[in-house]
Each structure stands twice: as structure tokens, then as C-alpha cells.
Amino acid sequence: MTNPGTGRGPLHLAAAIDLPGVYRADSYADLALLAERGALDFVTLKDSFARPGPDALAVAARIAPGTGRIGLVPTVTTTHTEPFHVQAAVATLDWVSHGRAGWQIDVSTTEAEARLFGRRGAAPREELWHEAGEVAEAAARLWDSWEDDAEIRDVATGRFIDRDRLHYVDFEGRTFSVRGPSIVPRPPQGHPVRVVDATAPQARETAARHADVALVRTSSAARAGAARSELRGLAARFGRDPQTLRVFAALDVDLGGGEHAAEPGHGGGPLPTAEGPAYRGGPVDLAELITGWHRAGTVDGFHLTPVEPRRDLERLVNGTVALLQHRGLFRTFYPGSTLREHLGLARPANQYAALAGVLS
């Protein structure tokens, strides 16, 4: 479905709700509820073995019951973790949130992180992202290892599961193998939404093969558009429908303490910094930037990281988002209940059920 105001697909918006040094889940819940009030597609929570902080996936599971529509996307690394347990934890989040889970896939690159586990040393990024792609593939197979009607729950006969609808996945990767099936029934979304930051060249193949949402950090609308075209072209080469890959521009935003014009150099867009592309200005000018990039067809949406989380997210929702809604460029309510529905993505067919249908 296209947005009649732009001639493009619907605009998508997401925000980070990271709170460095904060361990109380209710602080994250407050930000998630604020983002939900603005009808944002999803919020992300960063995580890494390299820094202290709460477990992002656990925080997402804790705040899920207190939210109703917003997608919840924690970072879970594929390095030094067990793919079987990672997929089960993400599937559980999808059940807890009634179909609003996502998974931002990331890798751990440092020797210090490797020493925390002591099983292997640090590896080049190319190898780690190849492994991440294999983990994403194994996860998809494990999510499908239970067909949707595998649970019988027949008290009279004592049968809980139809074993004919459980499947071994027998996945062999370079660094791990998984037999399956999963220990968690197929998630409500079929496959929770997978998000990959595709800014680094090493991550692009994994994003094109497996991501539902790819993030691109660039200060140029033209470069964002080129990255979107490249990623969708790769997706097509890998046999995917390129229209099923959403590409978001990822920006840090500093909306200040009052309405003011964008800082010099920011009026035409964000500026590159050591931390990545950053926008500094007022909510109105940010709405203009988002409108311009989306109308030009460069991106499908934006992932915004507030420099000052509480202040900037409130100004984003009450200022920028409200203005986009007033102009008819962004929705005022959630038309569906799952994160896939927010993003306009279909629920994937179960690959094992489909194969069984072909063979029968």
C-alpha cells in the first residue's frame, strides 16, 4: 500500500531507548510507552559484551506486558552465544509480546569480549558476519521446526504435540551445528523481525539475505538511496523479493531544549561525526528532513537515536511525529497488532509444512 501523500510506501519510524547506566526496567518502559503514543513501529535496545548494562532481551521481555502495540527489538549478538538458545529466547519474546518481537543481529569483534568466554579468540568481521548469517538461517529453520498446528493439547488422550508436525532442521554451519527441533512453539509472527545495521560492508550480505529491516548510517540522502538500491539488488540476487526488505536511515538526533532552526550545516541534512551521522536542530526541521528523504524515495523509514533520551524522544513524539501525522505522512494509530503488520510484512509460510505439502 502506498501513502497517497507521497506516492511512496508508508513512512516507518523507530527509535532507540538506550539509557546508559540505568538498570531499572521501568525507566525503559516509560520510553517505550512514549514511543507507542507516537505510533512508532518499534524501539531498539542496544547490548554488547563490551560494556556494562542490563541484558537487552531481558529488559524487552520485562516491559512487553506493559506495552500494547510498539515493536520491541533488543540487540542479541551471534558471537560466543549458542544459536539454539538465542532463537528460543527471541521466540519467547515474541510470545510474551503477542507478536511484537524483533532481533537486532550483531557481532562481537574484540579480544576482550572473547576472553569473557574463553572458547575462541577474536575473528575478522567478515568471518563473524558470515557466522551471523548462518545463525539467522538456523533460527528461521528452528522457528519453522514446529508447524503452526503442532500443539494438540488433548486432555482426554494426554497428547500435547503431534510429532509428525515437528521437524529436525539438521543445520551445519562453519562453527556450529543444530539438529532441532526448537523447544519453543512457532512464534506468533512465524519469524520475529530481524534487523541488521548494514552500514559496514561486511554486514551487507547478511542483511540482504536475512534482514527484514536494514539500517544504514549516512549523512547523505543520495548515499542512503544508493545503499537501499544496493541492498535490494543483493536481496534479489539471493532469491528474495526485494520489496520485503525495509531500509531505514539511522541518525543520532539532538533536538535541544526549545524550537530553533537547525544548526549551521544541518538545514540540508545531518552532518557526519565520529559517532556517525547526527542531526542537531528543532523538531520542525527534522520533520522537513524526514519528509524530503522519504518523498525522494531514498529510504523506507528512519531509526532515530536520541542524544538525550528522555528529552529528545519526547520532543520527537510531540513535535516531529505530531507534525508528520498532521500532514498525513505518518499514521496516527496502529492498524494491526504485530510488528510485521506495522512494517507491512507478511507472516512467512512454514518451510517444512510447505515441503510436506509438495511431497504429499
Results as ranks from 00 to 15, higher is better:
A262P: 02
H342T: 12
G68N: 11
A136T: 07
S337R: 15
H85A: 10
L11N: 06
G118W: 08
P270A: 05
E134D: 12
G265C: 09
A61H: 09
E172Y: 09
H12R: 15
S229K: 13
A226L: 14
P10M: 13
R37I: 00
G297V: 14
A122S: 14
E341I: 13
P185W: 02
A356Y: 06
R8A: 10
L355C: 02
S97E: 07
H191D: 03
V178Q: 04
R223P: 00
T199A: 05
L343Q: 08
V321R: 04
T244D: 10
V96R: 05
F248I: 05
G21M: 07
G121W: 07
T67W: 03
R331H: 12
L304K: 00
I70D: 09
R228E: 08
L93A: 08
E82F: 12
P20V: 13
R153Q: 04
L316R: 02
L339G: 02
R280A: 15
A150M: 09
N3D: 15
E230G: 06
T109V: 14
R8Q: 15
Y334Q: 06
S48I: 01
D149N: 12
V107F: 00
L245M: 04
R347M: 00
R223V: 05
G102N: 09
P309K: 03
A15S: 14
T6L: 13
V299G: 03
I70C: 06
A356Q: 14
A214D: 02
T157H: 15
L324S: 13
A222N: 03
T77Q: 10
G121Q: 05
I70Q: 07
A224T: 11
A353D: 11
L304W: 00
H98Y: 10
A122H: 06
E205Y: 03
A88L: 02
D154K: 07
G225A: 10
T77V: 08
G21Y: 01
G233H: 12
P283E: 14
V247T: 04
W143P: 03
R310Y: 01
G357P: 01
T244K: 09
P277V: 04
S97G: 06
F117N: 08
R240S: 08
R240N: 12
I70K: 04
V59E: 05
W95R: 14
A112G: 09
H98N: 15
G99Y: 05
G53A: 06
E259R: 10
E126H: 06
D170P: 01
V22N: 00
D55V: 12
P270W: 02
A262W: 00
A88P: 02
P192R: 09
A25H: 05
R295G: 07
W129H: 11
P242M: 13
S97H: 06
P185H: 07
Y352V: 02
D144W: 04
V184D: 14
A138T: 01
R120C: 08
T92K: 08
